[in-house]
């Protein structure tokens, strides 16, 4: 058995043991009153693909939330990369913008909810705003780090071989920065997806975050757990897909590790 298979096997075993303990705790002890057992949760979760929760099925909830996340994530990613390159390449941009980024970054997206409602209303705009904030700063900072990490000897080598300024940027600075951008995108994807619950606390009638919020409103414990499971599994799926893309695009760093 090779290393990867063994890792997966141990991971599965860990999950199985966890589910067993959860199940035992929920069915054999009093904890069952505050916590549905995993079988109920997963049955409800998979049933939801056929039988709607609220007015929509599970697939619709997941896709709605994914769309809500991906649009501002893409915008935040583009803006973040642009900002990061500006700050990394031009010292004056670094001096001018870094203080704002360092100040605004630690504010949790949830703190912006009241303001975002005032600014962008109850519809999609305010949700996009929150998720944009959740990814923009991280991506800008990691991109900036990437540009700063450019090896001076490689720049010398490129210039010695005849590269002009624009070529230096595309053939040396950009390839150095790509792995940094990807690690930023990876972290930001996690935070963007995590922010979906906060975003859907602003009025919504569908989405995985809404499952939790409405579950809380009607006191339906199983529905809350189903929402959590939906977020967890979708999160796992999208971050793995992201790793796959990274492995293809940054083959040289992955192989180097």
């Amino acid at each position: 058995m090779n290393g990867t298979k063994r890792r997966v096997a141990y991971g599965m075993l860990g999950i199985f043991i966890f589910l067993c303990i959860w199940h035992a705790a929920a069915t054999l002890t009093n904890l069952g009153r505050i916590m549905p057992d995993p079988v109920t949760v997963f049955v409800r979760f998979f049933m939801a693909f056929i039988e709607p929760i609220g007015t929509k099925t599970m697939l619709f909830h997941i896709l709605t939330s994914l769309r809500r996340m991906l649009i501002p994530y893409t915008l935040g990613g583009l803006a973040g990369v642009f900002m990061g390159v500006l700050m990394g390449w031009y010292r004056i941009c670094d001096a001018a913008f870094m203080p704002y980024i360092q100040m605004l970054r630690p504010i949790p997206p949830i703190a912006w909810i009241p303001l975002s409602i005032v600014w962008f209303g109850f519809a999609e705009g305010s949700k996009y705003f929150l998720i944009f904030l959740a990814c923009f700063f991280t991506i800008a900072l990691t991109t900036c780090d990437g540009v700063h990490s450019v090896d001076e000897t490689l720049v010398r080598a490129a210039r010695m071989l005849g590269a002009r300024d624009r070529q230096l940027f595309t053939t040396i600075v950009l390839p150095t920065t790509v792995p940094y951008i990807f690690s930023g995108l990876q972290v930001a994807l996690g935070s963007a997806w995590a922010t979906i619950v906060a975003a859907e606390m602003i009025r919504s009638s569908e989405g995985v975050g809404w499952l939790i919020v409405s579950g809380q409103d009607v006191g339906n414990m199983t529905q809350i757990m189903v929402g959590i499971v939906a977020i967890a599994l979708t999160g796992l799926l999208i971050t793995s897909m992201m790793r796959g893309v990274e492995a293809r695009l940054c083959a040289w760093t992955i192989r180097g590790k």
Partner: peptide
Amino acid sequence: GPGPERGMVFQNTALFPWLTVMGNVEYG
């Protein structure tokens, strides 16, 4: 300033890690 008529071989190689051997050699 630097130019291709003066070719340097660096102590730490300074190869471009994201390029293959061919990519490095044909870079100039």
